[in-house]
């Protein structure tokens, strides 16, 4: 469980950061920057490459979260909310915080993780 929780922390953070870069930086630059400007090109690059990377890492996040939810015996609503929050910028960090607390509260033995 400790290993799963640590891996969950890493993947949730990475996915959360990528999602913010993608949605709050890349897409606005791609959509609103002037054609031909450097910002537009950067935005396009971000939305193409980070978009694909985020998509696949989100799958890893889903599986990791689900494995963690089984080990920590989360109930289904908590699990689903945590899974879905991986798709919402910034909310993903809240979900991560909430999930880690939940695990540590329920399973004091992983406290030191």
């Amino acid at each position: 469980m400790k290993g799963t929780l640590n891996f969950y922390k890493v993947i949730a953070t990475v996915v959360g950061v990528l999602l913010i870069v993608l949605v709050l930086v890349g897409l606005p630059m791609d959509l609103f920057a002037a054609d031909g400007s450097g910002a537009k090109d950067a935005g396009r690059w971000i939305s193409r490459n980070i978009g694909v990377a985020h998509g696949w890492l989100y799958m890893v996040y889903l599986v990791t979260t689900f494995v963690l939810s089984r080990k920590a015996k989360w109930d289904m609503p908590f699990t689903i909310v945590t899974l879905i929050c991986g798709t919402i910028p910034i909310a993903s960090f809240w979900a991560e915080f909430r999930a880690i607390h939940h695990v540590q509260a329920e399973h004091p033995e992983v406290q030191a993780a």
């Binding site: 989360w74 607390h101 939940h102 509260a105 329920e106 004091p108």
Partner: peptide
């Protein structure tokens, strides 16, 4: 451990342990 009330409520009411 998990059979007292719903786990979610239980965890949120509980004070954060001293870490």
């Amino acid at each position: 451990s998990s059979e007292e009330g719903t786990p979610e409520e239980a965890s949120q009411d509980r004070p954060v342990p001293s870490d």
